[in-house]
């Protein structure tokens, strides 16, 4: 196993899985050191690092290592996860310094010569270990009215839309509300009033939907000093998104729409 000092979190695999045919070959196993930022308000006011070494397999993800610790070693370790397959968006956490979904980060893609650092996402109050209070995040999401508003008469069948019209906002329909983008944003860390990338992405999804009539209202909400103009284009959100949404691009499009609408 080769070791490079600064390898990106999802760099190329460094574990030789070997040539396995027919699915009968043994899956290689390796030792992984997990270093987790813990916070247990019942016992201590301070957060601290806890470390475990566990034997994992080439097919395992960071979430599997966390499960192994919680189920076999220390049951007090707390984290959120629901579907465990990258759809529900519950297990966003900071893995080796970057926001990732634990269920989509394969151990073999990480540099295993060093401990894997796991921390809660930043900018939201930590409740316990890797669990943060998501209320401020969802409050911003609610404020941009993430639902279809159509003032026309109720149709008797589906609202038709051309493929091109659907394509216009396709990228921002992929959001799973995991908060990886919003909690990677340096502006959000210091200014909790900022709507944050996720809320703007979900506003974008309706602003550019041809069936929706409330685009102007949403643009007005986001044309605010805590709205799109707070964005400083650090691109942390685009790099953090587990669904590959081009978040900064979506925010830029909303900025342009605000300007186009106000003149």
């Amino acid at each position: 196993m080769s070791t490079t000092a600064t390898e990106p979190a999802e760099g190329p695999s460094k574990v030789d899985l070997g040539a396995q045919g027919g699915g009968t070959g043994e899956i290689p196993s390796f030792d992984v050191t997990l270093k987790v930022r813990r916070y247990l308000p019942e016992t201590s006011e301070d957060a601290y690092w806890d470390e475990w070494t566990v034997t994992m397999y080439g097919t395992d993800r960071v979430l599997d290592a966390l499960h192994k610790v919680k189920w076999d070693i220390d049951g007090t370790l707390s984290f959120r996860r629901s579907c465990a397959h990258g759809v529900c968006g519950s297990d966003a956490m900071r893995i080796n310094g970057r926001n990732r979904l634990a269920c989509k980060t394969l151990l073999k893609d990480l540099d295993l010569s060093k401990p894997i650092l796991v921390e809660p996402i930043k900018g939201l109050p930590v409740e316990k270990d890797l669990i943060v209070d998501m209320d401020p995040f969802f409050q911003s999401y609610r404020e941009i009215m993430p639902f279809l508003i159509n003032k026309g008469p109720e149709p008797t069948k589906e609202r038709l839309q051309s493929a091109e019209e659907r394509e216009r906002f396709d990228d921002t329909t992929k959001c799973i509300l995991c908060a990886a983008c919003t909690s990677s944003c340096p502006v959000f860390w210091t200014d909790g009033q900022y709507f944050g990338p996720a809320a703007i992405v979900n506003a974008h999804r309706f602003i550019f939907d041809s069936r929706d009539d409330a685009g102007d209202m949403r643009l007005e909400i986001l044309n605010d000093k805590e709205g799109v103009w707070r964005c400083r284009t650090t691109f942390n959100c685009s790099e953090a998104c587990p669904r590959g949404i081009q978040v900064t691009k979506a925010i830029a499009e909303v900025k342009q729409a605000v300007l186009a609408g106000s003149f």
């Binding site: 930022r37 301070d46 690092w49 080796n96 310094g97 060093k114 650092l117 340096p186 790099e239 900064t248």
Partner: peptide, 18 residues
Amino acid sequence: QAPAKSGRGTLYRGNEGQ
């Protein structure tokens, strides 16, 4: 690695943009 047992959290590892 850098953080001690009771040490602080790590810096966010942003890229060029950050």
